[in-house]
């Protein structure tokens, strides 16, 4: 059966749910991605995302060895993401120190994850964590992503002018008396939570691509930060829905296909725009 007849089939609840997950995660990808691109913290987001494996591994180990059934890998992932975001934000002031902190949390987080899994009896397939599988996303994940979207939209609506001012010229915002560091930590925290929930869609390794490519594509056209956010949500949705359709039809992994879609959209549109903007 082709994709669209499956989609309209009343029995394929599951595929419709997958599409909903894709569309709702686009909101978070687009808005947080715009912030990540504007603040040039994509590598910071990358480090937060990779450190999540440490949290997941730790939880799986605790759960198996101590029979803690209530433990969910999500808790470990959230803890690891918030912790690494805090470490980089707090101790990584100055370009050189920040780079060291990013490299360290990135690699140590992954290493811890593997070590914990080695220590845990039994076999774990970490592929779905690393590369994501939107087809495995549960109803609970969908609800969490919708809740995240609501928090993100409310936050950026309320603090839009302040976010704009801080992204455009942090030093000037500080001189006007804004609590720039507090905002930075808050937004890093929000970015970390988003990374954790979005990992379900495209995986630890590739979440950084969905936080940069749609927003970068939007940046080719946007004239305001809000416009960039809206366009980034749109490009993100196109890549995800396109990726799901291709992945379903060609029977290929969804995460990588989504990333390639986002990449193709960016490079094609950037090449068309080349006369005006550099890549």
């Amino acid at each position: 059966m082709d994709f669209f007849s499956v989609l309209t089939d009343p029995n394929s609840l599951f595929l419709r749910q997958t599409l909903l997950v894709g569309l709702f995660s686009s909101i978070a990808f687009g808005i947080i991605g715009t912030y990540v691109i504007s603040r040039r913290i994509s590598y910071l987001a990358g480090a937060v995302s990779h450190s999540v494996l440490g949290g997941i591994g730790g939880v799986i180990w605790l759960k198996t060895v101590f029979q803690l059934e209530w433990l969910d890998p999500l808790y470990g992932a959230l803890l690891a993401a918030l912790l690494s975001a805090f470490i980089i934000g707090r101790f990584g002031s100055g370009r050189k120190k920040e780079e060291i902190m990013i490299g360290a949390t990135w690699a140590i987080g992954m290493a811890l994850g593997i070590i914990f899994m080695d220590m845990t009896p039994g076999y774990f397939d970490i592929t779905s964590y690393l590369f994501g599988d939107i087809l495995l996303v549960s109803v609970r994940d969908l609800k969490l992503i919708i809740a995240l979207d609501i928090v993100i939209i409310l936050f950026f609506y309320r603090f839009y002018h302040i976010v704009t001012a801080v992204c455009f010229d942090e030093e000037f915002a500080r001189l006007r008396g804004l609590k720039v560091d507090l905002f930075y930590q808050l937004l890093l925290g929000l970015t970390a939570v988003s990374v954790v929930l979005l990992i379900r869609v495209v995986g630890i390794v590739m979440v950084i691509a969905m936080l940069t490519l749609p927003a970068a594509t939007a940046g080719l056209y946007a004239r305001t930060l809000a416009g960039m956010m809206l366009l980034a949500v749109m490009f993100s949705a196109i890549a995800i829905v396109g990726g799901i359709i291709l992945s379903y039809s060609a029977n290929l992994s969804s995460g990588p296909i989504i990333i390639v879609c986002a990449g193709v959209i960016y490079f094609v549109l950037a090449a068309i725009k080349r006369d005006k903007y550099s890549l």
Partner: peptide
């Protein structure tokens, strides 16, 4: 120190 392409009016 500013990004001249920043989307802002």
């Amino acid at each position: 120190q500013l990004d001249p392409q920043f989307p802002i009016s």
